[in-house]
């Protein structure tokens, strides 16, 4: 009897489980039905969206947007590859100026003017074109031509000014630069226009010694009066007279003052002796001989 009761109990449990399963199955079926309904409803809408989207994209494609984008990418790539970072930095620094310039260029009146100029370029009046120099002169009587010339001249003036500023040495590195070429000039500025080096290291005051460049050598530091006598004897001058010494002293003083050896004429002027006397005192190349005895470099120049 006991087993019978047990069996009926488990059967009951089983029955309940099957019931629950059936319910769940019904629920699931209901869900699926709803989903199917939803899909059935949404699909046409999606299709419509797809259709419209494709038409739109096709239209864009036909108008060249994609090709443009692709090319733009290439362009950007090329730009990135070819632009070193420091240039980009410079570009960023001058962005404000660029924008200002663009703004100035896109003022309506400027654009009008450009349009008119372009029109004139497209339809030149060949028959009106001035011929030769006289034609040019005649054309310059026209008021419009004059105004145009004034504008061009003014523009040239600014351009010139700006180019001077752009090439000025680094004293004013932040000075406003011209649109044109300024950035290009900015980089090699350090190496660019060095002020011309002084022509000679020790530039003496312009000495009145015609076409004579200063001597580059210095005076003999070991020179003494005794040494002068020795050199004079070696040159065949014999003993040095007071007149000789006047010339030698002047030559040394003048060399110290001017940085160049005096020529014959200057020796005569400085020592107060006539040229003839200089030639007698130092026969044969007196300028050179006097310089040798005085321990200074040979004089240079033509007089």
């Amino acid at each position: 009897m006991e087993t019978n009761a047990q069996e009926s109990a488990s059967l009951h449990v089983l029955e309940r489980k099957v019931d629950a399963l059936g319910e769940q199955l019904a629920l699931l079926l209901e869900h699926q039905r709803r989903q199917q309904e939803l899909i059935d409803e949404v699909l046409p809408i999606l299709r419509e969206i797809m259709r419209v989207g494709i038409t739109k994209l096709d239209a864009l494609e036909q108008r060249g947007y994609f090709a443009f984008a692709q090319e733009s990418l290439h362009l950007l790539d090329a730009l990135v590859v070819s632009t070193p970072p420091e240039e980009l930095r410079q570009l960023g620094e001058s962005l404000g100026r660029i924008l200002r310039a663009v703004k100035a260029l896109t003022q309506p009146e400027v654009l009008d003017m450009a349009a008119q100029a372009a029109q004139a370029l497209q339809h030149p009046h060949a028959e009106d074109a001035p011929k030769g120099l006289l034609g040019m002169l005649k054309a310059s009587h026209d008021d419009d031509v004059r105004r145009g010339m004034a504008v061009m001249l003014e523009g040239l003036r600014y351009l010139g000014k700006a180019s001077v500023q752009a090439s000025a040495p680094a004293e004013a590195p932040r000075a406003p630069r011209a649109l044109l070429g300024a950035r290009r000039l900015a980089a090699p500025q350090a190496a660019a226009p060095q002020p011309a080096p002084p022509r000679r290291a020790a530039a003496p005051p312009p000495a009145p010694a015609a076409c004579a460049a200063p001597s580059q050598e210095g005076a003999d530091p070991t020179w003494t009066e005794a040494r002068a006598e020795e050199i004079a004897r070696a040159l065949g001058l014999g003993g040095l007279s007071e007149a000789h010494w006047a010339v030698i002293r002047f030559a040394r003083e003048d060399f110290a003052a001017q940085g160049r050896s005096p020529n014959v004429r200057r020796l005569a002027q400085g020592s107060g002796l006539p040229i003839k006397e200089i030639y007698t005192l130092f026969p044969k190349a007196p300028g050179v001989m006097a310089a040798q005895v005085a321990g200074i470099p040979k004089p240079v120049g033509c007089i």
Binding site: V264, R265, A268, P274, I275, K276, I278, Y279, I303
Partner: peptide, 8 residues
């Protein structure tokens, strides 16, 4: 000319 004469 004077210089030339002086110079011989």
């Amino acid at each position: 000319i004077e210089i030339l004469e002086g110079a011989g």
